[in-house]
Every structure is written in structure tokens, then in C-alpha cells.
Design a protein around this nucleic acid. Sequence first.
DNA 1: GGCGGTTAGTTGAGAGTTCAACAAAACCGA
DNA 2: TCGGTTTTGTTGAACTCTCAACTAACCGCC
Lengths: 153, 153
Amino acid sequence: MGVMTRWLDPDEQRTWRAFLAATRGLMENLDRELQRDAGMPHAYYEILVRLSEAPERRLRMSELADVTGSSRSRLSHAVARLEDAGWVRREDCPTDRRGQIAHLTDAGFATLAAAAPGHVEGVRRHLFDALTPAQVTQLRRISETLVDHLTGS
Amino acid sequence: MGVMTRWLDPDEQRTWRAFLAATRGLMENLDRELQRDAGMPHAYYEILVRLSEAPERRLRMSELADVTGSSRSRLSHAVARLEDAGWVRREDCPTDRRGQIAHLTDAGFATLAAAAPGHVEGVRRHLFDALTPAQVTQLRRISETLVDHLTGS
DNA sequence: GGCGGTTAGTTGAGAGTTCAACAAAACCGA
DNA sequence: TCGGTTTTGTTGAACTCTCAACTAACCGCC
């Protein structure tokens, strides 16, 4: 208590507000496009992507939660929904009776394969096409720094 | 149709995933802190901020939607909720009978004033403290470029 | 004046997220 | 090996957001 607040100076203020507007707008565009073209939100798309990259297209729920940066609860609800759609199936883990393994079905893979080109195009259009190569590098360094900082604190 | 998808190269892939992890982690931290300390999500905090900066702490619903980058529907629901909390009041617009004017109450201002130092501290801790001054400048330029690009397309 | 088109804002339903509580199994030190 | 602690995953309720539909009022033009 008693410590004066270090308010944002005008430059920081401007940076923060632009950052908010940019990330919000970007994610809203991608989310809307993905919902329209593939019938799923971006968070669900990410789950399918990570599963598709895993050995045998299988991943423990906890690992899947980690790599997608999702809470266990959120993942649980999401996978339930993806299972309803027939894109993912849950299996018991042979080595840990608590565990569940999420498995991307063929139908799920096909849906992902159909959605991916449009989505990648969207990422390009809304993000990479707007930036110079130098800015892309800067954005990568900044993002990686922030990820380290977030997980480190 | 028939155009080959321009997939992301490894560098772009890495940039995109780091960007997703960084923005998601950052916003989740801030959202959780704000919910814990001030009892509101970040989106609601932003509404109070914009109202507090407006002349007489009043803003047309449509302008408020624009500056907060929110849909009219979202804003309508949010302001209803803020009105329940006693932080905002809605008034009829004198010049346009369709219009509604959102007005930040004294209680709303007090709540905002109480929440602001902690939130600013969070923004500093999670974002600015991790970056060099050069990176802050880069992030501002990148963000402003993206905002222009998003609204321009 | 009045008619068609546009803009402002709200509403309800459906979908996704958060949070806290919970059960079950694994882990671990005494 | 026992009992407390941690980990895993799910659940339901409360909350927020999205989308489409809708009302009301404004605008422009004949």
C-alpha cells in the first residue's frame, strides 16, 4: 500500500490501446470466418490441429490442455462438444486409470483438412500480409518474450 | 478455386503460435485479475474507462460500441449488466428518439478508480516490464498497422 | 406527406467459458 | 502399508458472447 501507481505514459497508453484493438479485431475476424466456413470456433480448431499433429492423432487430455493453453474444464467441455460432432473420440488411458485420451477421428481429420486452407488464408490476409518481414520477426520475438515472461511469473 | 494454399512457413508458424499463446495468456491473466479484484471482466472495465473519459461521462451507445470495438448486441447486454450493478445509467437521447446515452454513475466512477491502479500494474507486469523500449515501439507500430489493415479491408 | 431504405438499440436463444466443487486414482512420506 | 496430498478429469451453475430477428425512429426523395 501507499506506493504510487505508475500510470501508463501517453506512448504506452497508445501502444496498449492499439494492441487491444488489433488482437481483438484479428481474433474476431478469424473466429467469425472459422465459424462460418467450418462450423467451429477458433479454440476448437486449435484442438483439432494439435491432435492431428500428435502421434497416432492421440493426446492425453492434460497434455492437450497444456498445448492449447486451455483450462481442464474448458477442454473437457470442448471435447465433449467435439465428440458430439463425431470429430474426436475419448478412450481410456492404459497406464493411468484416471486418464482420458482424446483421439481425432477420420471425420475430424477430414473436417480439419477442409477448414485449414481457408483459415490459413485468413491468417495471412489479416496478419502477415499487413506486416513487413522485419515486423514479423519483431512480432515473433515480442511474442516469445511475453510467453516466457507469463509462464515464468 | 484451384489455387494452392500458401501454407505458413516454419517461421510464420512459430510466430503465429507464439502470438496466440502470448495474447491469450496475457488477456486471461488480466481478465482473471480484474474479475478477482474488481468483480468485472476486462470488457466491462473498458466500457467504464471510455465513459469516464467522455464529456460529462456520457456517450451514445453506438459511439461506445465503436470505441470499445464491440457489437451493438454485446454492448447492450453489457450495459444492462453494468446498470444492474449501479455503475452505469441509461438516459434517453434528446436529439434522437432512437438513441440511448450511457452515463457513468458516481458509484461506477468510484469502482473504476479503485480498480485502475491494480489493473495498470497488471498491464505493466505482464506486458511492458517484459519488453525493451524498442520492442514497445515495434509493438505499437505493428498494432497500429494491423488496426488500419483490419478496418481498411 | 408519405413510402422505402437505413440506422439505433434491444431481445432471446444457443453456444462457449469460468469457477468451484467433486470423485477417483496416483503419489509419497512415515 | 497406511493416510494425507496431489493430479486428473468431469460436472453444473452462472455468466458472457454471438447471431438473427425485431421494433422504433430517422432519412431521403418523389
